Computed example of a mutant assay.
Amino acid sequence: MGFFDRLKLETETERQYLLGAPAIVACMQGEVTRERYLAFLHNAYHHVRHTVPLMMACGARLRDDQEWLCQALTEYIAEEYGHHEWILDDIAACGGDREAARLSAPNFETETMVVCAYDSVQRVNPLCLFGMIWVLEGTSVNLATPMADLIRETLSLPASACRYLYSHGELDQDHLKFFEDLMNRIEDPADQQDILHAARRMYRLYGDMFRSLPMEAA
């Protein structure tokens, strides 16, 4: 079994914890409010804006024998740069205040997720970053587009209000094969274990971010 398949198999329990978040369950049932969607976008902004800095931090800490990963990171950075601005555009298209969102503070759960991501990259192993990438891209490839469709239909929003979700549903389809090939080249058992540990923690923390969203009835 390749490491990518192990990563999927051995983080399934934590993935189910994320998918069981009431906000995700409600959305998939067509129950969504503008307040909840805006709260999601606010918190997405506060973790997505750290994606590129985290990738740069990872690249700066790679060992000499991990130099081959630098090319992958430069491709990821080129793809991910500026996506936090898309989220602010979505907020504005939903009638929210773009600048207030930029200046706002994240939920405790979102801030904890970001802090954990930096700590794992800087203190434990830079390859922990790929545990985070697996959680975010592996989730969005399955959920982003159908959730965007449901949110638009329920709230009567234009496509411009769901650019972040639609783009990641499309982008991450392509990214996933790239990520699979990348993970299958990682053979060091210690690196593999650190990535698995980071993914398990990130599923839990991302799930907690969704659990922090307001659940008032539509």
Rank of each mutant, 00 (worst) to 15 (best):
E10T: 03
M113K: 03
L136P: 06
C116V: 09
L129W: 12
L150K: 13
P22N: 08
D89G: 01
P106D: 08
D194L: 07
D5A: 12
Q122W: 14
R63T: 07
V48M: 05
H50Q: 12
F210A: 02
P189V: 00
A44P: 02
E111K: 06
A93T: 04
A100P: 05
R200W: 00
H197L: 10
C128D: 00
A159R: 14
Q173N: 08
F108W: 10
R63F: 03
I77Y: 01
T51C: 05
H50D: 05
F210R: 05
D97F: 08
E99R: 14
Y76C: 09
L129E: 03
L205I: 00
L196F: 15
N107M: 10
M55Y: 05
R152T: 10
T74N: 08
M202E: 12
A72M: 09
I133K: 07
F210C: 09
H84F: 10
A39M: 06
E180F: 06
G138K: 03
L9Y: 04
L62T: 04
E153Q: 15
S156V: 14
E79A: 13
G207N: 04
L38T: 03
G59N: 05
R98F: 12
M28L: 12
Q71G: 15
P189C: 04
R102N: 04
V25N: 02
L205Q: 05
E216L: 13
E216T: 11
F210D: 05
A39I: 09
R102G: 07
V115Q: 12
